[in-house]
């Protein structure tokens, strides 16, 4: 573990903490523009977090300690995942501790904890949310793993930094397997981040909500942590997508100077990605919960096709 490695690790985590709410603000702003509204501004998520942290937490009388621990666990998992994913640099000392499979495990850990916490109070909406979240989770996880496997078969490594280093150095040719994997990955990201075709992040209509139903009983600092964790998750997924499919610009271990260019490169890529996300969200309608398995099965099959294409064409 070198000093530059430690620094780039800390920088990655700090960047994630700061940029994640900004990304959310940007997506919301773009959505507002597309809907002919003026929008709340880029920094609304920060104001929101600050307000929530200042408020006192109201916890249900029937809540067990699990309910109060869960927001911290979820936040910790998401922050760590942002530290593992190569966002700015591939020189990450934490990276050997968790590869792509462990990253999926980390997301699953957060999901299980938030679902258990939602069931803890014993309200109708809480358990409804838990059930739906686990449903989406078990459908999305295999698809996500298939996407990661396709890239790790190409690069002969399941370490995320290894994958990215391989992807940066490969020739600038179109890999058909990666095209399939990319589409599958975007579909999975929509589902996992509770975005529109699957879930609506702004809804509080009882019968359709998924993510909102999970965090319905939370308030104050707990809610702030969960909102921040959700923003971190969106950031982590975006960065996985960027790292797998558009890795150019990420600084490499040998060359710490490129770190200076990595941040603007990442911000530009995220800005374009966020605008696209807002566009897709505006253009599509939320689907019924029982159409979700079809949607995610499609994602899964696309990922499998991507892998088969890799075997058939060797690319």
């Amino acid at each position: 573990m070198t000093i530059s490695g430690t620094l780039s690790q800390l920088l990655a985590i700090f960047t994630a903490l700061v940029v994640a709410p900004l990304l959310l603000g940007w997506v919301n702003q773009c959505r507002a523009w597309l809907q002919n509204r003026s929008g709340p501004g880029l920094f609304q998520p920060y104001r929101m977090l600050n307000k929530l942290f200042n408020k006192e937490s109201v916890v249900a009388e029937t809540a067990s300690p699990l309910f109060r621990i869960a927001p911290y666990v979820v936040f910790g998992c998401m922050l760590l995942s942002c530290g593992i994913v190569p966002t700015l640099s591939t020189d990450l000392p934490l990276s050997p501790a968790a590869d792509a499979i462990a990253l999926v495990g980390l997301f699953a850990m957060a999901r299980v904890f938030i679902s258990l916490a939602a069931m803890d109070i014993g309200t109708a909406f809480g358990s409804l949310g838990a059930r739906r979240e686990m449903l989406i989770g078990f459908l999305a996880e295999p698809a996500l793993l298939m996407v990661l496997f396709t890239s790790s078969l190409i690069s002969q490594s399941t370490a995320l930094t290894g994958i990215v280093e391989h992807m940066v150095h490969k020739d600038l040719a179109i890999y058909p397997s990666l095209a399939f994997a990319g589409i599958a990955f975007s579909m999975v990201s929509f589902a996992e981040n509770a975005r529109v075709p699957i879930d609506n992040p702004t809804t509080h209509l009882e019968l359709t909500m998924i993510h909102e139903a999970l965090i319905l009983e939370y308030s104050g600092r707990h809610l702030a942590l969960l909102e921040w964790a959700a923003a971190l998750k969106l950031f982590a997924y975006s960065c996985i997508g960027l790292a797998l499919f558009l890795p150019w610009g990420i600084a490499e271990a040998q060359d710490p100077m490129t770190l200076l260019f990595a941040l603007p490169a990442m911000l530009i890529k995220l800005a374009i990605g966020g605008a696209l996300l807002a566009l897709i969200e505006t253009l599509s309608a939320k689907m019924r919960i029982f159409r979700v398995p079809e949607f995610l099965a499609t994602a899964f099959l696309l990922a499998v096709i991507g892998m088969l294409v890799h075997f058939l064409l060797g690319a």
């Binding site: 942290f53 937490s57 249900a60 666990v73 760590l80 109070i121 909406f125 319905l216 009983e217």
Partner: peptide, 29 residues
Amino acid sequence: GVFACLSLAYLLVRLLYHGRLRRAAPWDC
């Protein structure tokens, strides 16, 4: 790593803000 992130969050929340908590009936919309 998880533990460090978790305790960092806990400490920062306590230091920068507060730890006030109130018990009430469940909200459930």
